[in-house]
């Protein structure tokens, strides 16, 4: 083994230092919010909570996650995320496949997709479209318009192009039809990219605030992000001047807001470690052959 020189060491230390600082910068605010959610209200008000909880208690968190509005919004978000991700990944996978082949006119189809990446109808026309399709106040309005993300489609297509063509040819010689090739050979080989794109889609569906804000009025269909935004904003001091006295008296304490943030962020954070190994591999896949 080659002996490491001083400059190698110092570079390593430097890199680790930078990364630790960057890590801390992202981690500390999270830790702060988490600590607030499990600290006593008096400690939060008097600014005693930094990284570690003060006056540890779980009641706030428990009250938040057991409130019926939270549970309902959580269920809606889980539904949208699971169904949306499965549908998106399926549609993306089968759309990318023909696009990766040399078929007559396929480049024109590709241009059509890329066109939507650069141009769209704008907010009001899109809203009117959703309304005229009678999708308002349905969960499909959150899923269908987002079912294909062209960027993800391109990643998928590039990945397919890296697979050796000989693989398909030999399968075809063995008598496999197109569907069998796609589902039995191509897709199993594409697991890394599928995992990555699933994560992209899942995070998008989970965090989406804007579309539910536009398309959903029915309380029973409100997503977690809508609920979270309302909880956080209602205690915003910037809007205090326009609040009625009853609203001022009913403002939720900071601990409750922190607990709501924690309860709605933790589920999607939990997904990361399981997908991380694919994630790192996946972002690079298809990048060589463009």
């Amino acid at each position: 083994m080659k002996k490491r020189s001083f400059s190698d060491w110092s570079l390593d230390i430097f890199v680790y230092l930078i990364l630790s600082v960057a890590g801390l910068i992202t981690l500390l605010p999270l830790a702060n919010v988490f600590s607030k959610s499990v600290s006593a209200e008096w400690a939060v008000i008097s600014g005693k909570v930094n990284i570690w909880p003060v006056g540890f208690q779980l009641d706030t968190l428990r009250n938040v996650v057991t409130s019926s509005v939270f549970v309902q919004a959580f269920a809606v978000s889980v539904f949208v995320t699971v169904v949306g991700t499965l549908l998106s990944i399926f549609v993306t996978a089968i759309t990318a496949y023909p696009l990766s082949k040399r078929l007559p006119g396929i480049s024109f189809v590709m241009v059509l997709f890329i066109f939507t990446m650069l141009f769209n109808g704008g907010l009001i026309p899109t809203y009117l479209l959703i309304r005229n399709l009678h999708l308002l106040d349905t969960l499909w309005s959150l899923i269908l318009p987002a079912v294909v993300n062209v960027f993800n489609l391109l990643v998928m297509k590039s990945y397919y192009e890296t697979l050796p063509e000989a693989l398909e040819e030999s399968a075809r010689i063995d008598g496999a039809k197109t569907y069998a090739i796609l589902f039995k050979i191509i897709l199993p080989l594409s697991m890394p990219v599928i995992a990555t794109i699933s994560l992209f889609y899942a995070v998008f569906f989970w965090n989406d605030y804007f579309h539910p804000m536009l398309y959903i009025n029915d309380e029973a269909l409100k997503t977690l992000q809508l609920y979270l935004r309302d909880v956080v904003m209602q205690a915003d001091s910037a809007t205090a001047a326009s609040k009625s006295i009853d609203e001022l008296m009913n403002m939720s304490p900071e601990g409750v807001r922190a607990a709501t943030v924690v309860a709605s962020t933790v589920p999607i954070i939990c997904v990361y470690p399981f997908l991380q190994k694919y994630f790192i591999k996946g972002v690079l896949v298809g990048s060589v052959k463009g």
């Binding site: 006593a40 209200e41 008096w42 400690a43 008000i45 008097s46 005693k48 304490p253």
Partner: peptide, 10 residues
């Protein structure tokens, strides 16, 4: 009420 609670604790 919230201020009084926190002040009394501290």
């Amino acid at each position: 009420p919230t201020i009084a609670d926190a002040l009394k604790k501290n």
